[in-house]
Amino acid sequence: MACFLVSAAEAAIVTVAAKVMEKKEKEPAKVEFHLSDGTTETATKIPFSRKLKWLRNLLWGGSVLLAFEHVWHGEVVPWFPFLTAAGDPADFAEMLHEMATVGVTMALLVTAVWVCMLVVSALIEKRAQKAIHTEVSAEG
């Protein structure tokens, strides 16, 4: 009925958080390694604001496409109060229940997947840095 609103609200919060984080963040730390063959390897950590943008894109993308589905089914209309369920108290209560169950689960699942993405990217970053360190120490 309006389950996408929960994810849209989270998306709005994440968008603001990403903007604030981006402003506060300094230039990402770069580590340069000079190898014996004359080449230089650079390792850069992905800034957290960029990682927040992954979550923002997941949430906004999902919310917009889900909102379109609700328009398709006639649950969202272009006139006030925009949600057909909001006109009837019984439907309104059902809508709130759906938002609290389906909507919250959607937002939680998307956030959980994003956390998994963070863990995987941290592991990849660690492995890449370790590989460069090993290469440098082997040459040194």
């Binding site: 997941l58 999902g62 997947v113």
Partner: peptide
């Protein structure tokens, strides 16, 4: 294309929840 990926994966996850319910 990363934006497109995020958009479709986000929608897929949300519809998965819908399907489970």
């Amino acid at each position: 294309t990363g934006i497109l990926c995020c958009m479709y994966w986000g929608a897929s996850l949300m519809w998965l929840v819908d399907a489970i319910f």
